[in-house]
């Protein structure tokens, strides 16, 4: 479960202050797939950064799985990201020198887990995301959709509590995008994984259980697309 309470994030750009996010309250139950929509500058990326422990709020608290992350030191945040979070980005963000399987096990290697034990798991994940036989290809030998599938497998590897996706289909054609979304949807549902996805594509947002709309840093709409998952 995720609880956001009175989270405010203010950026200072020179002399001007920008209140990028001013969120009274947001609760995301475990296993929910939440889509966050909003125009540019609505605060959706800021929210994602805060939930992703990439940034800390100026005031307020954010609790993920009972852990208050808004006041953690940098190293703790890193460890939290490593162990409890999974990321999927618009630009795939794979390391170009590593093969698909190496990219997948990267977070585990960072936390010092043995390579031997992670590699079979990574192979299994790659098979699940439909990349059987492409494990040893490097990013420049993969298509956009394939790269995003690798990113999904990477995000799932450490069995995170929360998966964060930033415009995961923004750089894909609509058919490939739909396939990737379906993959994320199915993979997370099977694991009862909480997902927060930021998008400005209404069709993509539809995949979620719930859609929250932001404008000027605040929630302006909150709707369930289907009955809440049990």
């Amino acid at each position: 479960m995720i609880t956001v309470d009175k989270a405010v994030r203010i950026y200072r750009r020179g002399k001007t202050e920008v209140r990028a996010l001013n969120l009274e309250s947001l609760v995301v139950p475990k296993g929910q797939f939440l889509s966050v929509m909003g125009a540019s500058g609505s605060g959706k990326s800021t929210l994602l950064n805060l939930l992703g422990a990439l940034d800390v709020p100026t005031s307020g608290t954010i609790t993920i799985e009972g852990r208050e992350i808004s006041r953690l030191p940098d190293d703790e945040l890193s460890r939290f990201r490593r162990d409890r979070l999974g990321f999927i980005f618009q630009f795939f963000n794979l390391l170009p020198t590593l093969t698909a399987v190496e990219n997948v096990i990267l977070p585990a290697l960072l936390s010092g887990r043995a390579r031997g034990e992670m590699v079979p798991k990574a192979h299994a994940l790659l098979e699940q995301v439909g990349l059987k036989g492409r494990d040893h290809h490097r990013p420049d030998e993969l298509s956009g959709g394939e790269m995003q599938r690798v990113a999904v497998a990477r995000a799932l590897l450490t069995e995170p509590a929360l998966l964060l996706a930033d415009e995961p289909t923004g750089n894909l054609d609509s058919r490939t995008g739909a396939e990737v979304l379906k993959l994320i949807r199915e993979a997370t549902r099977a694991r009862n994984l909480t997902v927060v996805m930021v998008t400005h594509d209404p069709k993509a947002a539809e995949v979620g259980d719930r859609i929250v709309r932001l404008a000027d840093g605040s929630v302006v709409g909150d709707e369930q697309t289907r009955p809440q998952a049990a």
Binding site: D75, R79, R81, N93, L106, P107, L110
Partner: peptide, 16 residues
């Protein structure tokens, strides 16, 4: 820079 950002996002600490 982006790669460093990615590494940090997926949990690399500063010392890494």
């Amino acid at each position: 820079t982006r790669e460093i950002g990615l590494l940090r996002a997926i949990g690399a600490a500063r010392r890494h």
